[in-house]
Write a protein that binds this DNA or RNA. Structure first.
Lengths: 195, 195, 195, 195
DNA sequence: CAGTAAACGAGACGGTACGTCCCGTCTTATG
DNA sequence: CATAAGACGGGACGTACCGTCTCGTTTACTG
């Protein structure tokens, strides 16, 4: 039973879609700094006036376009904690090696340093991506595989941290050996926490 | 007998210093994206022509200014591998909590995605910062405390990765408990590698 | 039984009236250059689509609104040529000192330089305003007070010209002394023409 | 002995000249309302930034360009008042028939209705053009040909008013017969003033 | 210690992007 | 079917910064 508030002009949807698509394209090519509204307008065929009609500022458009980056991964459920984590880590590693958004994300991290709105968006984005780790941890606790006191954030940091580090900071290869090592380390450490 | 190449006009040094100082100031305030040569010129009192005389482009100036970020930390030498690593991790955590350069670094990481020169600079910066980890690992190996096959990069990733992750991605507190946990985990994992 | 051409929707009349009123208001306030259809729409409550349905262009609306400027003065008939002219001159002088349309008229004169339609409208407007001079001249000729060969346009130019000149060009006061002098000069000149 | 204040960058002079020339061209073609800075920039090859560097606003450029309209006519000195006036009237009539500035002047008159700065500029322009009438009147007074009490403004209005009226309002031909009639009327009226 | 070469500040210049406003056309939903 | 509401592409507005350029004027070294 859709309310009347949901009725939107088709033209609006068309314009918005065209702008977001072109924005996304430019973002992955040049990062936030290289995004130009004039260029988006030119290449999407949508006039600047229309763009500013739908997004009050460059930042707003950025926000909107960025928040559509990277869809949610599906959460593995193998029945074994380490296997679940390995699945998540491999999935993330895959993304880090190939996905277009990985070249934009540093722009967001950078902008978040100074723009609270972008910081909020980054936080939401990050939460979405990290939720699967919390979920598999919860399941493992329920199964008694993981100690009840296990800190999901610490576990996440132990796995995601090294992967991110390789992608953006050290720029070394993220091969399966590395992914496996990182995951095993994290699991072993967890075990150590509860003798 | 100093070669003529080393003779530099005092005025040149003065100009360069003023420009770099102002660039650094602006960089930490607004990031790479907010840096304006016009503004640097205005506030440093050095004319744009002079700036472009010394640095061929905005990027070159950026490079020069950024490469002065974060001085080299001194390498701890307690005689115990884990203590050395803990010292390094604590030092890094301290920096991540307080140093001005931490708000600029994402700008560099971002720019490095698209600019090979900046990528090279980032790589050099990174190597400098990470070298202490390699050094203490080397010493530990010499002492027989660490296995000869220990991979310093993997060890580094295990410690630095989670710290960076907290500073820029999850934005959770980097308290001493976390630093300790991260370090211990890394050391334990290393031990596991060589039964 | 009125023909169908004469049946006009009441709503149409309402819209037209509201638009013309607002257009006139804006015209006298800001001149032709300052007239904005968007603003007329906003303040009259009539949508832009409706405005463009009734007038094909900005110019057409302008034309319509301007052609309602300055109603026809009544023609004096004192029985004396000079008194009639003085009456007309005084009436005109009054208008030039106080009427709102005097601040719009230069806009029309300007636009007429380049837009033939506006030129035609200006010509019609002008004819209407100048007709009284021709009428009193005609009456004077009939009474034998004025020579049959008297050129009404020349007479009109001699009286209206100086008045307009003061209002828009020299911007000097148009007091009664001036109006009287101008009229008397014109009449005297006419007398001189036919000894 | 030119002061150092008069030293102007050649580039500035070049830019200013190009902009003023193009502005003048556009002005005579389209009037004030049709003048576009973007278009001036495009056709003159001078960037908008440079234009705004030299003139703070569209109005300022307008002012500058307009104030160069119509050079000063030379003042006739035949020794006979009526002949002098006839010379001036004929010169003006010539201009009104042919000069490019006559199509711009209504724009100025219009703008002057609402913009005090343009009003001041118009006033200055007007004074310059009307001064010759005051000069020949002065000379005539000195020769005793004209009464000492003769009002130059009234005389000017009597001659210039009808000419302007024909050019912009009635749009009738300004032939020599008309010019002669207007001048003679004015002179005769003046004579009448002093019995 | 005068002469000269460089380094300099000041700022003009052509470009490009910004975000805003208005034009005249159009589409949609309401009465 | 006329209307109000308002989206749309186009294009001008005035501002800011880019990287290049031309000026005269210091300033430091060299002969």
């Amino acid at each position: 039973m859709p309310g009347p508030a949901e009725i939107v002009d088709k033209r609006v949807e068309r314009s918005k879609a065209a702008v977001l698509a072109e924005t996304y394209r430019q973002l992955t090519e040049t990062g936030i700094g290289g995004l130009s509204i004039d260029e988006v307008s030119r290449r999407s065929g949508v006039s600047k006036a229309t763009i500013y009609r739908h997004w009050p500022s460059r930042s707003a458009l950025l926000l909107d376009a960025c928040s559509r980056l990277g869809g949610a991964a599906d959460v593995p459920d193998t029945g074994d904690f380490q296997d679940d984590l390995l699945g998540l880590a491999r999935g993330l590693a895959d993304q880090l090696r190939t996905a277009a958004w990985t070249s934009v994300y540093p722009s967001i991290i950078d902008a978040a340093e100074r723009d609270p709105e972008i910081a909020a968006m980054q936080s939401a984005l990050h939460s979405g991506w990290m939720k699967p780790f919390a979920i598999v941890a919860e399941r493992a606790k329920a199964r008694g595989e993981a100690p009840a006191g296990l800190s999901a954030p610490v576990l996440t940091a132990a796995i995601v941290g090294p992967l991110f580090y390789r992608r953006w900071f050290s720029k070394e290869e993220i091969d399966d050996r590395f992914v496996t090592a990182v995951t095993e380390t994290a699991v072993a450490a967890m075990a150590r926490q509860t003798p």
